[in-house]
Design a protein around this nucleic acid. Structure first.
Lengths: 70, 70
DNA sequence: GGGATTTATACCCGATAGGGTATAATCATC
DNA sequence: GATGATTATACCCTATCGGGTATAAATCCC
């Protein structure tokens, strides 16, 4: 798990949710969630945070080597 | 320093750069850098990363309480 | 393998992010 | 206090993000 998208995908599966369910719960569009899991780089931070909050996380500053830091 | 914007602002001052200089070095617009330092929530991740990379950092997943994690 | 579910890809379209710029406000130095 | 530099705020305009949706591909379960 070395990217934001992979993180979301793995957490989603841990919670046994479909993309559709997670998107609905997080309040974002299905298409956006898919782009997030595919690590599209141009996503808006607020939308990404709406998803990450479902897992008690959010976007923050990390060192360049690291990707996930909890 | 408990936000991405504050982090950028502080790092920029540590490097003794003006907003204009950092924006130019990072390859983003001056207006964007100002919105970043003001913690506008709807910023695009790729643009934010262009600035953070100047300081050896980037956006990543952090726990909800934390904001900066190096 | 077949049918159902889930995910990936592609399109349209409205809303807005971000570049540029101009002006006002703030700050520094004298 | 005045001058110059830096930062904050406000506007215009284009590019594109994100919602919605439709279809194809992949995955699952029997």
């Amino acid at each position: 798990m070395n990217s934001c998208g992979k993180y979301v995908k793995e957490m989603r599966k841990q919670y046994s949710l479909t993309q559709e369910q997670l998107a609905a719960k997080a309040g974002v569009g299905l298409r956006f969630l898919r782009e997030l899991e595919a690590d599209k780089p141009t996503l808006r931070m607020d939308k990404v945070n709406m998803v990450l909050e479902m897992f008690g996380t959010k976007l923050g500053v990390v060192s360049k080597e690291k990707q996930i830091e909890l």
